[in-house]
Design a protein around this nucleic acid. Structure first.
Lengths: 248, 248
DNA sequence: GCTTCGGCTTGATCTGGGTCAAGGATCGCG
DNA sequence: CGCGATCCTTGACCCAGATCAAGCCGAAGC
């Protein structure tokens, strides 16, 4: 999960096209080369489950390209997404040996993985990395709690607007674009995945998307390409005061 | 937030009646005495706000007695509880200088506080403590995500049952009682606070409590004293498979 | 070109939980 | 002992969003 507070200061890891948020900005090249030694890449196809909740997880790592989601499921099939992983986000629970959620690739996905044992050893030897990991976990916790407010107290329309603002903001920061008025991005989720994120049904998601479009809050080119003529308007629809909002 | 996975292994800190979950089990007495040097106690009255979201927070610490909550509020007053702090729970965000949520004492409360700067310094010098802090944050993250499923996908009745099962379980573990059938505990929350935790209204909470009582899932002595004749039945009502459930 | 299929939209209807409103129980206090 | 005050319960009604159902659209395959 993203952070508004901690910009991505981390060093480039070898030939990875993304920067590993797990790697502290203060790490020297020695430490980077240690990371280099234990890393490997893996690709997954859209729809593939990377780990099942409860399974042993033998690596940690970062998303390089593509989108993954963390979901929880009840026996009767109700599912709730509890995390959205975009490029540069970290996956894994150092110190835990099994996954607490299903991790699913929703698009084709490339991950840069580190074998867990050596990574943990490195982490224990390298306070900066441990420190950065705590930072990241606190960021995720903030994001999760922010999401609790969305799930518990917002209307369907506000939920959709909140999700769009988060994805838009995240997309802009990945592309190093300031939040100027008028942004445009590709929605990386199906209506169903959006519904699972928001605790809604896909029909309600669809209706509210149509409604936001009808009211000029967003424009849709096709079903997935979204542009937002006025970001503050979107934030208002999301029930957030136009500055900050996330992580008050 | 509690952990099922990490039992409270930490050493007793000086004269605190609780064990500080922040302190790693492997800490030696030297480290404990360092903690001893920077700690102090504070009391709060029921209803008092300990920190406001966004305010500078100059300490971290543990709840000694009483209950506190973490809440987020929208401008129009809708509020969502995002964390429930029971005795021995840790409060604070090492490395962050301002609070992300309101911290409110819902009963009279005593906290054992550590001044933040020295605590962070100690943490940086003491990998075990840093490690334990990461553990605890991961536990809180699990709890928050578990709660996202509750908020997003459960019915009112399931939400109530989930909350009761969490409080009951937590209470039992504090008192070192195994989850034998037949537990009994004092509800530390008003109906309104329960509603804020569950994303419901207080009327709905009240109705569902009555309904669970009518159906023999719980018994109520007065408004706050709850007994659960059959814990598995409660878990079933909560929509959880009777083992584990939390943190799958 | 036609067919199929997954993803999406839209309509009609139903219902869980919100809202509004009227008390009831328990407590501390003068 | 009566008076608020706080917290809780219960009833009547309503509406946002779920559910059920019927297509639409665009890409892939033949």
């Amino acid at each position: 999960m993203p952070s508004k507070m901690s910009p991505d200061l981390s060093l480039q890891c070898g030939d990875c096209p993304i920067r590993h948020r797990a790697v502290c900005a203060r790490c020297d090249s020695d430490e980077l080369s240690l990371l280099e030694d234990i890393k490997y890449y893996r690709s997954y196809e859209a729809g593939q489950t990377i780990v099942w909740s409860g399974d042993r997880m033998e690596f940690v790592g970062s998303v390089v390209t593509g989108i993954a989601t963390l979901t929880q499921t009840m026996e009767d099939g109700r599912t709730q997404m509890v995390g959205l992983l975009l490029p540069s986000d970290f996956v894994g629970r150092p110190g835990r040996d099994s996954a607490a959620y299903n991790v699913v690739a929703t698009t084709d996905l490339v991950m840069c993985c580190f074998r867990k044992k050596p990574f943990e050893a490195l982490m224990n030897r390298t306070p900066h990395i441990a420190h950065r990991l705590l930072e990241m976990t606190l960021d995720e916790l903030d994001a999760a709690r922010e999401w609790m407010l969305v799930l518990g107290r917002k209307t369907a329309r506000e939920k959709i607007a909140s999700l769009l603002s988060i994805i838009g903001r995240r997309d802009a920061s990945l592309r190093l674009i300031g939040t100027v008025d008028g942004m445009s991005f590709e929605l990386p989720l199906t209506r169903e995945a959006m519904a699972d994120y928001l605790g809604l049904t896909l029909e309600t998601v669809s209706r509210q998307m149509s409604s936001l479009k009808r009211d000029g809050v967003i424009e849709l080119a096709g079903k997935r390409q979204v542009s937002v003529p006025d970001f503050d308007r979107l934030l208002e629809e999301a029930g957030e005061d136009s500055d900050g909002g996330l992580v008050a």
